[in-house]
Each structure stands twice: as structure tokens, then as C-alpha cells.
Design a protein around this nucleic acid. Structure first.
Lengths: 147, 147
DNA sequence: CCCGTATTGATGATGATTATCGATACGGCT
DNA sequence: AGCCGTATCGATAATCATCATCAATACGGG
């Protein structure tokens, strides 16, 4: 299952004169085994479970490589720490976050995507990605249920 | 010109049993004199120009108050530091940022806003705000001009 | 003008990330 | 298989942004 990602990372490293090492493979495996929206520290914890001797600095360095290689995507850091999510085989999506309980809904909305393209055209920009975070109260946290 | 903002801040402070002080007025003035998207540190520098004796902690504390009072809005921290922008007399807008030169276009798009409301409804969320950042290359930085 | 309380500024603490550095592992070459 | 230059590692110290602490001070109602 990890074959694709491993190959992508290796190809990326090769192209930059970097090496596919044990530690990097460990971090990749740790990252792939976690759910979306993980902090670098959470990846570090997971990596330590696979290889107790791995260093925190290595994890930070490698996660950055994963992002450069297109395997990880940096999610907006709402609180203190940066968060990462899977970017391979995990189509683009936006987030709808409950400000009360922290629940996150991932969604894609064709109308929004279309309207964004129109904005790019309007200002003569070439698109290179976007980040949309909607905040609100989820049904469970809303003060009262819909009438 | 600062009258409105000053009054808003004072009213907000009153309502919470807090006081309108010299230091807070200095921070407010410093903030209002800066362009949008400033870091707390930039506000600190500006405030020091108005009152060299002001402390950094005071600026951090006060900027947070400005945000609570509705005078400042927290913009997404793309790099390391949190950024603030004016929120009073400065309607809601989203950002279109050039990844090359850092130019920022502020825009509002009715279609996007409408589509976002639809997403909230679809998932039963009550809206409490959103953050949209479009990234791309501005006309000046694009590899070649439009055909 | 006084007093209780909010505020201040300096400083230390924290958390996340990055830089440094000697030791080590890779991997192409022979 | 073994050597060697270089990339990498892990530990640790350094940074950066932000927050907490605390004694000294300023506010403002009475």
C-alpha cells in the first residue's frame, strides 16, 4: 500500500541528490498510518513507536520533505502548531470546523471551486492552490436544534 | 478619525470592567496607523515609536483586546507569526496572495459567499465566520502574459 | 484625595521549530 | 567487498512568537 508513496518520495529525493534512508522511510510510514490533520509532534510520537531511537529534528526535517514531495499538505495552523494532512490519493478538499467541539467535516463544493476560478481570472492571477476554512457550530453543539 | 475606534474600545472595556489606559490608547493608535496584515511585533515597533517605554507584553495583551472588541481581525498565520488586520470600517473580505512577490489583493465575491452558506446548510452548521486564501501568481510574476 | 483593583513592564517560562555539530550511514566506484 | 565523499542522524542549543508571573504603578469611583 505504501509502495506508491515510497516510490514518489524516493524519486523526489533522487531528483535532488538526496537519499532514501531508514529514518525517512520510518517517518513516511508513521505519517501514512495517521489520520489527517496531524501535528509534526504527533508524527514524531508515531515514528518513535516504529523506531524509538528516531530524533525529533529528523521528523521535522522529513515532514518538510514529504510536503515538498507532494505527499503531505500543510493545513492552516489555527492553534499553535502546524498541521499536516495526506496529499497523495486524497483529493483536494476544504474544511468545515466546529468552533465548539473541534469536529472537522471535509467537503468539496463545485460552486465554490468554480467561483474561485472566476476570481483568479478577474484579477489575472494564475492559480496555485487555496485554503478555505469555514467555522461554525455543528448540529451537536448548536444552541438548539433546527426547527 | 480615531474617535470611533477609541469609543468602541472604551465601550468594550467598560462592559468588562476594564480600563481605558494610556498604554492601550497607544497600541490602538499604532495599530490604526499601520496597513493591514501586520504582525503583533510590527505593532510593537510602531507603538514604541509613540511611547518608547511600552512593553511588548502589553502590546500582545492589547492587540488581543482589540480583536475581542471587534477592531482587529486575526488573519491566517501563513509564516511564523500571527497577523492582524483592521476590522472596523473594513468589511469582510478574502485574500488573493501572490506566492512569488507576496502581493495581496483583497476581494469579496458574492458567489463564493453564497456557496459557503449553502455548505453550512448542507451540513447543518451555524456559520461563525470563515477564512479563504487563494494563492497564485500575480500578472507581474506570471511566467508570461496572457495571450 | 484615597483605596481597591486593573494594568504595566521586565523577566522568565513555554511550545514549536530551526540551526549546529560531531558521529554515522549511504551508495557509487573500484 | 571495501573505501570515501557527502548526506544524514540524533542530541542539544538556539530562535521565535507568545504567554504567565509578579512587584510596582496608574485609574477612577466615592
Amino acid at each position: 500500500m505504501n509502495g506508491d508513496e515510497r516510490a514518489i518520495l524516493e524519486r523526489y529525493l533522487r531528483s535532488r541528490g538526496l537519499k532514501m534512508t531508514q529514518a525517512r522511510e520510518t517517518v513516511l510510514t508513521a505519517f501514512l498510518g495517521l489520520e489527517s490533520h496531524v501535528s509534526a509532534d504527533a508524527i514524531y510520537e508515531a515514528a518513535k513507536r516504529l523506531d524509538p531511537g528516531i530524533g525529533q529534528a529528523t521528523v521535522f526535517r522529513t515532514v518538510k520533505l514529504l510536503a515538498d514531495a507532494g505527499l503531505a499538505r500543510e493545513a492552516c495552523r489555527d492553534d499553535g502548531a502546524r498541521r499536516y494532512e495526506h496529499a497523495y490519493n486524497h483529493a483536494h478538499h476544504d474544511h468545515l470546523t466546529c468552533v465548539e467541539c473541534g469536529a472537522i467535516v471535509e467537503f468539496v463544493d463545485a460552486d465554490i471551486e468554480r467561483a474561485q476560478e472566476a476570481v483568479y481570472r478577474r484579477y489575472g492571477f494564475a492559480s496555485s492552490g487555496h485554503r478555505l476554512e469555514l467555522y461554525g457550530l455543528c448540529p451537536d453543539c448548536a444552541p438548539f436544534d433546527e426547527p
